[in-house]
Design a protein around this nucleic acid. Structure first.
Lengths: 340, 340
DNA sequence: TTGAAAGCGCTAACAA
DNA sequence: TTGTTAGCGCTTTCAA
């Protein structure tokens, strides 16, 4: 910066101001600085800036998996909303492991992010302490934690599953099964299972058809294997709810391979409204949690929190929406959806 | 750090050394430092460390889209390989736009990454100049650029497509079509189209059945729409190659909706070997580019480059593999694949 | 609108 | 194995 200052015939401070593009520098000076910077191939050093100003312009974001279209959409929403303010995302993923999350939080906090976004409300005690002490805005998303750390942008996974079960009950399904992951790890998956069981019982139906498909995330292939298992053990099942659209698609294909009619013999439903749900044949009944909107709202919340415009911890509900499609409803000759 | 030093009864330098966990500190001193740090809730400041040591421990990685399972796998491979050395990924995505890439490169270079990984070999002139001047290891991946900037981990998209066309020709397909994106933007997609045309011509066949499905990435739904278009305009087509498995799956579903038999009437093939290709019915013939391996190899290359163990620019080929499945071959009564 | 002085929190370099 | 000194490249603060 000193070199640029010399070349432009100004002080380093003017160079600094020119790069912050506030209106605090004369157009002449700015032009001279930019010219010199270009000539000398100068690249601004954010680390030095961050150290002195105590503003890193980082927002840390932790998601369970980088390989998931829904979380990717949320990150896009965050990224879009934060970019306008010059905030950059520092991304980490946990592979659905709270211990890994703790390590990640410790690591990311060293970079002095201005805010931290985490997925879900389940964290280790140490993770909670670290986030508390960090004294930065914290946002939990994709859930409605019973004991939030800071702000929240999410929805009740259990309640959303209830909506799906209500739909299946309304179209006459009585022997519903759930395919999901190992209950211990993926808390959102566990919440969905819990919501399934509660809703099925509420309808006075049998809530014991639960297939454990292993540790999350449940892949398409694992969904297919779980469906095979289910069809062997409980062949009279007339509806299957899967923890996500990906496993639901796997389950659907298993039905196709076995010549089992969907939805005539068994209805199939997923969660997430991934693109595949709308495109596959038949299209999948599912629940849209609006991942992009979650990202946008989280970004908004961060910007407001950084501007001290939030009076206290804010809980923002993004209501999921049922997408009833042919995998549960059936399609008539005229192409319109019909009930069983 | 001064506070920790005081509390632990050592100098700040010893605190610094303890946190670098080299074997340069006595176990006693280290324990005292860690205890004090824990008591005081100290969090190491990477920005200050980066400024003084001129080592950011960042590796910048630029991919076209964060919402793509293949690129996500490559990022996982990179992340796994770099984590062991304490290197953290700074991720950016371009939405398949070279201008956006240029902006991103400028932004990321301000963070002083130790290396930069970009996708493909097409960049703006300014981007090339910036990367040159940055004087850090640069890796281009997912392609074999004609004029590499630095190191390369990739494959020829055109050649890989040729393999697919050869396979279709070998099983007797003669009227092949290609579904892909707007030629101007996605260079890997364009290379695949080019490879398709060249290979089809090599077999003495008509290479004019090219469907433009719009700007990349081509979604499942866009693949379905393109297939509908193709079936209307050239109903005698007996094989369709899509720029990716996602569009290929969309095309497959369009055939299912129209009652067109795959592969009997038309073979469908994709690119990428996404999970859906193996799971859908019938499973999709495709090409596996080994995205995770690309990430691992890129990470290896970076570590070697940072250790000055690379004599010069290195070109690492990761050979893609044809995955011939039932969407092109057909399945006999015994479940084994048969030719047409 | 511009500049001078000081210092953010670490670590390189050197010394003991 | 430990400590001292100086300074990384910016920006805050204050003054002109």
């Amino acid at each position: 910066m000193i070199d640029i200052a010399r070349a432009a015939g100004v002080s380093p401070m003017t160079v600094s101001r020119a790069f912050k593009n506030a209106g605090l520098v004369s157009p002449t000076a700015r032009a001279a600085v930019m010219q010199a910077a270009d000539d000398l191939g100068y690249v601004f050093d954010s680390a030095a800036s961050a150290l002195r100003s105590q503003r890193s312009d980082f927002v840390a974001v932790i998601i369970p998996s980088i390989n998931n279209a829904n979380f990717a959409d949320t990150v896009r929403g965050l990224s879009d909303g934060l970019r306008a303010r010059g905030l950059q995302i520092l991304l980490g993923y946990t592979d659905y492991d709270v211990e890994a999350e703790e390590v990640l939080i410790a690591q990311l906090l060293r970079r002095r992010p201005e805010a931290m976004v985490v997925t879900g409300g389940t964290h280790t005690d140490r993770a909670r302490v670290m986030l508390d002490k960090a004294a930065i805005p914290v946002i939990e998303m994709w859930d409605l934690p019973a004991h939030p750390i800071g702000h929240v942008v999410g929805f009740s996974n259990a309640a959303a599953m209830g909506t799906l079960v209500d739909h299946l009950a309304a179209i006459g399904r009585r022997r519903m099964a759930f395919i999901g992951g190992d209950a211990a790890r993926d808390t959102r998956g566990t919440d969905r299972r819990r919501g399934f069981v509660a809703a099925v019982r509420r309808h006075g139906l049998d809530a014991t058809r639960l297939i454990d498909a292993g540790p999350p995330p449940i892949s398409m292939a694992e969904g297919a294997a779980a469906m095979a298992d289910l069809l062997e053990r409980m062949p009279d099942t007339d509806a299957v709810v899967c923890v996500s659209d990906l496993s639901a698609f796997g389950a659907l294909t298993e039905c196709q391979r076995r010549g089992i009619a969907v939805p005539d013999q068994v209805a199939v439903a997923g969660f997430g409204d991934y693109e595949i749900a709308a495109v596959c044949v038949p299209p999948l009944t599912t629940v849209n949690p609006f991942p992009l909107r979650i990202g946008h709202e989280a970004a908004d919340l961060i910007l407001k929190a950084l501007d001290d415009e939030l009076p206290g911890p804010t809980i923002l509900r993004v209501a999921p929406e049922l997408q009833a499609r042919a995998s549960s409803l059936g399609v008539g000759q005229d192409g319109r959806l019909i009930r069983r």
